[in-house]
């Protein structure tokens, strides 16, 4: 039994889409549905089955061109998603850095309000509050403005279809990155997270409390992001 024109076309498209994974499999199913529908419609209009297959394949276009466009679209979309993801990551990194710096400024001001007898002024250096907040505050504000500009401009450009959405796996990647970075940052200064935090934000001030709260929020957000991504992946697989 010889292959029909449609079968031969699909075989050649299958070869042309090798290595494209799920994207290629989905395209093959769509193209097959299209060609079978097209053939059935032509037969309904009085064509012989052989002529209908030949005509449907010809209307669809050269198989190498179709495969090339599908592959190129796949590559372009991956690059666009990577650029969009990088844009979002930079914006979020600026927002996180801004929050960190502004929290430090708030901590220093709070400690200064407690008076000059504050015990760990050498470790967390709140003795020169004016000097420290004087250079930290502009940095924090600048980072916050840069982050806001990046997030708003990305959102506006996305609405105008100038920027792609970020990669689907980005939340999971970010969660894993945060989960890996947190212990590194907490232990790289001296090994003991409590000692490190005491040195950085003061053992008795609100800084340690804020660090613990921020860590808990980050951990909860990471777990929620991973759970959400896994659920979304399962929904797509079941669809």
């Amino acid at each position: 039994m010889t292959d029909s024109d449609v079968d031969r076309y699909l075989d050649r498209l299958f070869d042309g889409l090798a290595g494209t994974g799920g994207v290629g499999r989905r395209a093959l199913v769509e193209v097959e549905d299209h060609l079978r529908t097209s053939v059935a419609e032509r037969v309904d209009h009085g064509m012989s089955h052989e002529d209908a297959e030949r005509s449907a394949v010809a209307s669809f276009g050269d198989v190498r061109m179709v495969a090339r466009r599908l592959r190129a679209g796949h590559r372009q979309a991956r690059r666009a998603a990577a650029a969009s993801s990088a844009w979002l990551v930079v914006a979020l990194a600026c927002a996180a850095a801004a929050a960190s710096v502004l929290l430090t400024v708030a901590d220093r001001l709070w400690e200064a309000a407690r008076g000059p007898s504050w015990g760990d002024c050498v470790a967390s250096s709140p003795c020169d509050v004016a000097g420290e907040t004087g250079y930290l505050l502009p940095i924090g504000v600048t980072l916050a403005v840069v982050s806001a500009v990046l997030l708003v401009s990305r959102h506006l450009l996305q609405r105008r279809a100038r920027v792609a959405t970020s990669a689907r796996r980005l939340p999971v990647l970010l969660a894993v990155l945060c989960a890996l970075l947190t212990p590194v940052l907490l232990t790289s200064f001296g090994g003991d997270p409590v000692t490190v935090n005491s040195a950085v934000v003061g053992a008795n001030g609100p800084g340690l409390f804020m660090t613990v709260v921020a860590s808990a929020v980050t951990a909860a957000a990471s777990i929620a992001a991973i759970g959400w991504a896994l659920l979304a992946q399962r929904r797509r697989a079941n669809a």
Binding site: V23, G61, M65, H74, Q76, A77, A161
Partner: peptide, 21 residues
């Protein structure tokens, strides 16, 4: 050419402008 439509639809979907099931 009908074959040009599917790559374009896939691109639009990845750009978040259409979705599909």
């Amino acid at each position: 050419p009908e074959g040009t439509v599917y790559p374009a639809l896939h691109r639009l979907e990845r750009a978040g402008l259409v979705n599909s099931d």
